[in-house]
Structures are given as structure tokens and as C-alpha cells.
């Protein structure tokens, strides 16, 4: 009896975790919100990771992550089921980040600097101390930071970076290269010893 119940349960229960991104998006489009919930569960960390490294601010990054998923949900019909949902949602996030930078420019520089330092200190305390690295990363221009984070934090290929940022592959390679050079240079200037 228990075996029978378990079998029926397995047949009836939808295993969202085993489904492809396309199948989950299709379910969400047909009114099954849980399909989209699984997509959020899968990619919220990746989206947050990019948003955080681009804004250097946890609150802004979480707001951007939320906004990216809400935007994706509203525009789910335009998602090509054969493409990677991860790249799609990261593209949405990258574009939202650009808008955030535009509005941030209007803020006072002192407030910006204070918030940045506070966030870096707080995040540094949480786990390993990455304060120096995050300070150096935050000092890079967004143009170099975005491809660098996509390459070395999100593990994207150059083709994916090019598609996400809407630039050519050679431009993606060049920006990653310049980003690495500047990051290493900044880290070295922070540390007088060889211990990076």
C-alpha cells in the first residue's frame, strides 16, 4: 500500500527541479507560477552576483535582482525557449544595472563613497575578508567590471559575454583583458608586499 501511494505520489507530483529552463518557462506561461519559482531558485544567486559586483551595494543589488525577475516574468513570452534562461535573465540584469548607474551619477559623490565603503566593510565581515578586492573591483569602470565579473565570477564564455552586453566577441575579450590588468594593478598598489 505504501509502495502504491509512493508510486502515485511520484507520478502526480511534478518534479520542477528536473525540468529544463524552457519547460519551466512554458509552464509559467500557461499559468503555473511554480515553474517560474524554480527559475528564480536556480538563477537568483547568479543575477545577484552580477548586480552586487556592478553596484557594490547589497540593497541595490537585491532590488535589481528582484526587478530583473519581475521584468523577466512580464516579458516571459519573448523568451526563446531554446536559449539559456540564465543568459537571458543576466542580460536583463545587465541592462537594468546600466540604468541604475545612470541614476546614480546624479547622487552626491560623498554619499556614494560612504555607502560603498560601508557595504564593502559589511560584506568583508560576513565571510572571508574580500574588502580589498571589492574596493579594487569597485574602482574599475563599469565597462570593464561587467565583462570581468561575467567571465570570472559567473564563468561565462566570451561569446556569452558578447551576447549579454551586446558587444562584439573581440571587444568582450579586450575588456576582460583590460579589466584583469587594471584589477591586478590596483591590488598590487594596495599591497606593498607580494602577498595579494
Amino acid at each position: 500500500m505504501t509502495f502504491f501511494t509512493a508510486t502515485v505520489y511520484n507520478i502526480v507530483t511534478i518534479k520542477y527541479a528536473d525540468m529544463s529552463d524552457g519547460a519551466l518557462a512554458e509552464r509559467a506561461l500557461n499559468g503555473d507560477k511554480k515553474g517560474f519559482e524554480e527559475l528564480v531558485r536556480r538563477y537568483q544567486r547568479a543575477v545577484f552576483g552580477l548586480a552586487y559586483h556592478m553596484t557594490s551595494n547589497v540593497a541595490d543589488a537585491e532590488d535589481l535582482t528582484q526587478e530583473a525577475f519581475v521584468t523577466a516574468y512580464r516579458r516571459l513570452d519573448s523568451f526563446d525557449m531554446d536559449r539559456s534562461f540564465r543568459n537571458w535573465i543576466i542580460t536583463i540584469c545587465a541592462n537594468l544595472t546600466k540604468n541604475t548607474f545612470r541614476s546614480r551619477i546624479r547622487r552626491k559623490k560623498t554619499e556614494e563613497s560612504y555607502l560603498l565603503q560601508r557595504e564593502i566593510q559589511e560584506s568583508g565581515k560576513k565571510k572571508e575578508n574580500h574588502g580589498d578586492l571589492l574596493t579594487a573591483l569597485a574602482a574599475l569602470s563599469p565597462k570593464l567590471r561587467a565583462p570581468l565579473v561575467l567571465k570570472h565570477v559567473e564563468g561565462c564564455a566570451y561569446e556569452e559575454i558578447a551576447r549579454i552586453l551586446n558587444i562584439g566577441i573581440s571587444a568582450a575579450k579586450m575588456r576582460v583583458k583590460r579589466g584583469r590588468d587594471e584589477l591586478v594593478k590596483l591590488m598590487e598598489s594596495q599591497h606593498t608586499t607580494n602577498e595579494i
Binding site: 528564480v40 525577475f69 565570477v153
Partner: peptide
């Protein structure tokens, strides 16, 4: 430097998932 960057993944708040789901519009896409 790059190995440190790869490991410098900041975790979001625990309630981020719930906040995202709550913010989704009621209306179906």
C-alpha cells in the same frame, strides 16, 4: 587575484527568494 575574485561571491539575504516571488505580478505573463 582572479582566484580570489572567483571565490568572492557575496550571498544575498535569505529572504530574497520570497521577496522576488511576492513581487511577481498576480496576472499571468
Amino acid at each position: 587575484v582572479l582566484a580570489r575574485l572567483e571565490n568572492a561571491r557575496i550571498q544575498p539575504s535569505d529572504d530574497l527568494f520570497d521577496r522576488i516571488i511576492k513581487a511577481l505580478p498576480e496576472k499571468e505573463p
